[in-house]
């Protein structure tokens, strides 16, 4: 049962990560389940030293596979997009009750360039180290750092812009 306790510790992190990537509650939940399914299948063969990084890597691949699969269903694409809109169209109550701020943050992150996005999500939003992030994105550490730096700068300026608007 030990391994399950470790998994539970990272469950929220994984959910948040997959939500950050997919921007959809249902997709994120399904992908969390798929991620753990994959870890259960492959765990006995691998000697894992860094569970968190490994879980994130598996989660990322799960997300990529899922995106690819959905892309193939071309006739459904339009419907999916509508669905996504629906689920991300928040009612006023939701906005009060739910994670309004994070939602907005993610919307902003998604305006960044894809590589910057992912670097920011990994390092700033989920506290992975540079090495771990670079490994997941399959980049060398220097280009990962530069992606992260540029993404962070862009995000900060967007945040400032918004604060100025609010004021």
């Amino acid at each position: 049962m030990e391994i399950d306790d470790i998994y539970k510790n990272y469950m929220y992190d994984l959910y948040r990560y997959l939500f950050s990537l997919s921007k959809n509650h249902h997709t994120a939940e399904d992908l969390v389940q798929e991620t753990f399914y994959r870890t259960y299948l492959s765990l006995p063969e691998q000697n894992i030293t860094n569970i968190k990084a490994w879980l994130f890597k598996v989660a990322y691949h799960t997300f990529i596979d899922d995106t690819r699969k959905n892309k193939k269903q071309i006739p459904n694409e339009e419907i999916e997009r509508l669905k996504d809109k629906e689920s991300s169209a928040w009612t006023p109550e939701d906005q009060v009750l739910q994670n309004e701020e994070y939602q907005q943050l993610i919307e902003m992150v998604h305006q960044l360039r894809p590589k910057h996005q992912h670097a920011v999500i990994l390092c700033d939003l989920h506290e992975l180290t540079y090495e771990e992030g670079a490994q997941i994105m399959e980049l060398n550490i220097n280009s990962f750092k530069s992606n992260l730096y540029r993404g962070r700068q862009a995000l900060m300026s967007k945040l400032n812009e918004r604060r100025n608007q609010d004021e």
């Binding site: 929220y12 959910y15 948040r16 939500f19 009750l97 739910q98 994670n99 309004e100 701020e101 994070y102 907005q104 943050l105 939003l125």
Partner: peptide, 10 residues
């Protein structure tokens, strides 16, 4: 802050 809020509502 936003992370904490998100986790609480998750």
């Amino acid at each position: 802050r936003s992370k904490k809020q998100f986790d609480e509502n998750t």
